[in-house]
Design a protein around this nucleic acid. Structure first.
Lengths: 401, 401
DNA sequence: TGTTGTTAGTTTAGAAAGAAAACTAAGACT
DNA sequence: AGTCTTAGTTTTCTTTCTAAACTAACAACA
C-alpha cells in the first residue's frame, strides 16, 4: 500500500483560500439547494462581497443556476441558488460478478442515463474493452450531447488502493493487482479530466451520503450483501471522507470472524462472516449451483422449510455483523444494499430485529441509528463512483473547471 | 448525542489563512524536529518570506527554539528548529477504576511530573474534588513554576460525547451522564484556557500517534485491556482525527459479539467480547474476587493449569477481536495497553499468534500491520489527554496563545 | 400613490496576507 | 582572497478578503 504515513498538514496561499471559499459555497448550495447569497454570507461568515463574487463566477462556469425569488419578509427578496443540473455530467460504472453497470448523472445525483450489461466474468483486459465500448455508447446518447463530462468513476468488487490506483484483489472475478484505469483509459480517447476507481461498497457508501441534501447524516456505513459481504464507511469530516485504513482493508467486514472454529473461508481463515451470511454461504447451505441465479432459486423455493431456516440463520448472523459494525464504527446510518436485499424479510427481518434489540444496550434510550434497506441497489455503486468524481472536482486541488 | 449532522464545509479569511500556515509550520517542526526554514518553505510550498515571518512569531511566542546549525553542503547552513520544551506545559489526567493518574508534559510529550493516586471508585463530585486537589499539587511543583499551562485533558473510562461534553456511561465507576468538566472546573480556579475530556482509550490512541515523530503511522488503533475492553482509533487525516461515531460508540469493541448464545454481559446482550477476554471475564472464569488485584492473583498462580488455560482462551479471543478490528478499521498500527498487558505472554502470545497468522489472508504478503504491546501503560491515557490539549491549541480556531 | 423601512446584492476603497525578487549572511571550495 | 552556493531577510507588488457606502427590490402604511 502506498500511503503508509500521515499526510503533511495543509498550507495555502491566497489562491488556495479563494478556492477553499468557492468550493465551500458550492458545497453549501449542493447540500441545501435554494440558499441565497445572503444566507451563505451569514452561515459561512463571509462578506456579501466575497460571496457575490464567487457566486458570479460559479454561475458563469455553469455550476450554479439562479432560481425563484424567496418570499420577502419586508425587504428585497433573495434569489435562490441551485446546482445547475444541465451543464455537467458525471459518469460512474461498476464492474461486478454479474455484469457491468453504468450511469450518467447530474451534479445533484439524478441519473440521466443508465445501462446494465449482463456479462460473465472475464479478464481485466476484456472487461476494460467491453466497458470502454459501453461508456462510449452512453456518452453518445442525445441527452449527453450538450453536457461537459467531469470524469469517470469505476467501482470494483474488492479492496482498492486508490492512491496507486490498483485493485488488490477481486476473488469473485479471479483478478489480482489490476491497474484497471491503465487498461481502460487508452480505450476512451476523449479526454475526461478525472478518472478514479474504488471499492464497490466504498463508492456506494460515499454516494449514499454525498448525494443527500438537507439534514445529511454525520456518517454512513454501507453494507453490500452479494456473493461476499463488503462494507464502506463515510466519516464525519467535511468534505465527507471514506475510511480506507492503511491497506484499504477498512470495511472488509465479510472477513471478521464470528465462529472461531467455523467453516473455512476462501481467504483461508475459519469462521468469517462470509461463511455464514453471504450469497456464497446461502448457496452452499442450500446446495444451489453457481450458474443458477440465487435470488430466483430462492424465490422459487421460498416456502421450503430448509430455505426459511437457512435464511433466518444467515439473517441472524447479519444482525450480529451489523451490531459489531455499530460498536466499532458507530455510523449514524447503516444502509444495506447488494443483490441479496432482494431476498426480502426472510433474510433481513432477523437482522433488523437483532440490531434493533441490541443497538442501544450501552447508552439506553438515546437516538437510534437508522438501518435502511435499499429497494433497488442496482446502480448504487456506479452512482457512488460518479459522486466521488464530483467530490474530487469540488474538493480537489485543481480549480473548478 | 449532539453532533448528528455533517459539519458545514470550512471557509476562511486572510487571518484564517495565516493561522492555517502557522499551525502547519508548527506541526511540521513537531513531526520532524530539526527542520530549517528553507526545508519548510520547500515542503510546504510557501515562500521563504512567509515561513521566516511565521517562524519569527512562533519563536517569540515560545513555541519554537533555534537549535544547532545544519551541516553545510556548499552554502550557508540552515538553522535547526525545534519545539521549545521549556515554555509550555500540558496537563493530563485519567480517572480509572483503580485510581487517578496525572501527568504534566512538554510540547514534545515528555513527562515532567506524574502522580498515581490509588483511590476507590467514588461519586463524580468526590472524584472531582480529589482530582482538583492533585492537579493543584502537580501545578505547584518546582519544575512547573515557569511554565505556561496550555490546558487540561481528562480521560474517562466510558463513552464520552466530547461536544457536550458528557460522560455517557462508566459501568465500572457506576457513573452515568456525568458532566465531569462542570464539576471540576470551578475547583481549579487558575484559568486554564482549555479543558477537555474524552474516552480513555481514545485519549490513549491519540497520544500514541500524536507524540510520535519521524515516520508517523497513517493510523493507529489502541486497545485498552482492563476490567472491560475499550478501543480508540486515530484516522489518517492531518491533523489526526479520532473516530468517534455518531454516538461516541466507535471503538466499543468490548461489546462486539463473538459468541451469539454466549454468556450474558453487563450490557444485557450475550456473547460480547468482554465476556470472553476482559479482566472481568478472567476473574469470573477463575473465581477471583473483585477486591483482589487480578494481576497479583494470577502471577501467584501462574503455573496453575486452569490459569494457563483461561489465559490462553482469553488470548485467543483477543486475537480474533484484533483481527476483526483489522478487517473493519485497518489501522496501520495496533497498540495494546491497559492493566492486563502485565499478564504477559500467557495471555498475549496466543493473540499475537492468531493475528500474525491471519492478518494478511486477503492481500498476501504485503506490508504488515504492527501489533505493539506496551510495557507500561500507566500514564498512556493521561498523556494522551494532554496530547489532545496540544492538538486543540495547534489546530483549533483560536490563535496560538 | 408616494414615503419609509428593511433586506439583497453590488461597487469601491482599504487592509492584510503571501509571492517575487533583490538583498544580506555564512559557509565550502578553489 | 575570491567565487559559488545556499539560508534567511527586506522590499515591493499582487491578490484576496473586508468594510462601508451604494443601488435594487419589496412590504407596510399613510
Amino acid at each position: 500500500m502506498s500511503i503508509v504515513y500521515l499526510p503533511p498538514h495543509r498550507t495555502g496561499d491566497l489562491h488556495y483560500l479563494k478556492r477553499l471559499n468557492r468550493s465551500a459555497i458550492l458545497e453549501m448550495i449542493r447540500q441545501t439547494p435554494g440558499l441565497t447569497r445572503a444566507d451563505i454570507a451569514t452561515q459561512a461568515q463571509l462578506t456579501k462581497a466575497t460571496v457575490g463574487n464567487s457566486v458570479q463566477t460559479l454561475l458563469g462556469q455553469g455550476w450554479l443556476s439562479e432560481g425563484e425569488l424567496h418570499k420577502s419578509s419586508g425587504g428585497r427578496p433573495g434569489r435562490a441558488l441551485h446546482l445547475n443540473d444541465e451543464h455537467f455530467a458525471l459518469l460512474g460504472a461498476e464492474v461486478g460478478v454479474h455484469g457491468l453497470r453504468l450511469v450518467a448523472c447530474t451534479l445533484s445525483g439524478n441519473i440521466i442515463e443508465s445501462h446494465h450489461e449482463q456479462v460473465l466474468p472475464a479478464s481485466p483486459e476484456a472487461t476494460a474493452h467491453t466497458l470502454a465500448q459501453l461508456l462510449k455508447e452512453l456518452k453518445a446518447r442525445p441527452s449527453m450531447a450538450d453536457r461537459h463530462c467531469l470524469g469517470i468513476g469505476i467501482a470494483l468488487p474488492g479492496p482498492v488502493d486508490p492512491a496507486a490506483p490498483v485493485l488488490r484483489l477481486a476473488p469473485n472475478l479471479n483478478w489480482q493487482d489490476v491497474r484497471f484505469l491503465d487498461l481502460i483509459r487508452p480505450l476512451v480517447p476523449e479526454a475526461t479530466s478525472i478518472w478514479l476507481m474504488d471499492n464497490e461498497a466504498k463508492s456506494a457508501a460515499f454516494g449514499e451520503l454525498y448525494f443527500r441534501t438537507g439534514n445529511i447524516p454525520h456518517s454512513l456505513a454501507y453494507v453490500s450483501l452479494g456473493t461476499g459481504i463488503g462494507g464502506g464507511m463515510v466519516t464525519d469530516q467535511s468534505p465527507p471522507q471514506l475510511s480506507r485504513g492503511a491497506q484499504g482493508l477498512a470495511g472488509e467486514i465479510g472477513h471478521t470472524v464470528l465462529q472461531p472454529n467455523g467453516q473455512y473461508c476462501h481467504c483461508g481463515n475459519r469462521g468469517c462472516a462470509e461463511t455464514l451470511a453471504s450469497g456464497w454461504a446461502i448457496r452452499a447451505a442450500l446446495g444451489i449451483a453457481e450458474d443458477i441465479n440465487l435470488v430466483d432459486a430462492i424465490s422459487a423455493r421460498q416456502h421450503d422449510e430448509d430455505v426459511q431456516y437457512v435464511l433466518r440463520r444467515a439473517g441472524e448472523t447479519l444482525g450480529i455483523l451489523l451490531l459489531n459494525l455499530h460498536h466499532t464504527q458507530n455510523a449514524a446510518e447503516i444502509v444495506l444494499g447488494g443483490s441479496l436485499v432482494q431476498l426480502g424479510p426472510a433474510f433481513l427481518a432477523p437482522a433488523q430485529r437483532y440490531f434493533a434489540a441490541n443497538q442501544n444496550r450501552l447508552l439506553g434510550n438515546g437516538q437510534k441509528v437508522r438501518l435502511r434497506i435499499l429497494d433497488d441497489a442496482t446502480f448504487v455503486a456506479a452512482r457512488g463512483a460518479a459522486a466521488q468524481v464530483l467530490a474530487t472536482v469540488i474538493h480537489g486541488s485543481n480549480d473548478l473547471v
